[in-house]
Computed example of a mutant assay.
Amino acid sequence: MDGYEPDESRLDWRNVDSDPATAGRYLDLVANLIDEIRARATSRLGLEPGGSVLEVGCGNGLEAERLAALVGSAGRVVATDLSGEMILQAQARTRSLGLPIRFEVADAQALPYRDGEFDAARVERMLQHVPDPALVVRELIRVVRPGGRVCAFEPDWETMVLATGGDNEVQRALRRHKVDIRTAHGGIGRELPHLFVTAGCQDISVEPIAHSVRDLALADSILGLSASLEGAVAEGWVSEEAARVWWDQTQARSAAGGFFASMIGVIVAGRVP
Rank of each mutant, 00 (worst) to 15 (best):
Q89G: 06
A90H: 13
Q91G: 15
A92T: 10
R93P: 11
T94A: 15
R95G: 03
R95V: 15
R95C: 09
G98R: 06
P100L: 12
R102Q: 14
V105K: 15
D107P: 01
D107R: 05
D107I: 01
A108S: 14
A110H: 15
L111N: 00
L111S: 02
E117A: 15
E117S: 15
E117Q: 15
F118H: 08
D119S: 13
R122Q: 04
E124K: 10
E124V: 03
R125W: 06
M126A: 12
M126Q: 07
M126H: 05
L127Q: 02
L127W: 02
Q128K: 10
V130D: 01
P131S: 07
L135Q: 14
R138Q: 14
R138I: 02
L140I: 06
I141S: 13
I141P: 04
R142M: 13
R142P: 05
R142Y: 12
V143G: 10
V143Y: 04
V143L: 07
R145N: 00
P146K: 14
G148T: 00
G148N: 01
G148K: 02
C151T: 09
E154W: 05
E154A: 08
P155G: 09
T159H: 06
M160F: 14
M160C: 12
V161I: 12
N168E: 13
E169L: 10
E169V: 07
A173P: 10
L174H: 10
R176H: 13
H177V: 06
V179Y: 13
V179H: 15
I181E: 14
R182V: 06
A184P: 03
H185M: 08
G187T: 14
I188F: 05
I188E: 06
E191W: 09
L192T: 02
P193D: 04
V197Q: 13
Q202H: 05
V206G: 00
P208G: 02
I209N: 00
H211P: 00
H211S: 13
H211A: 09
D215I: 01
A217Q: 09
L218I: 03
S221Y: 00
L223G: 03
G224F: 06
G224A: 07
L225G: 04
S226G: 03
A227D: 08
A227K: 09
A227Y: 12
G231Y: 11
G231F: 10
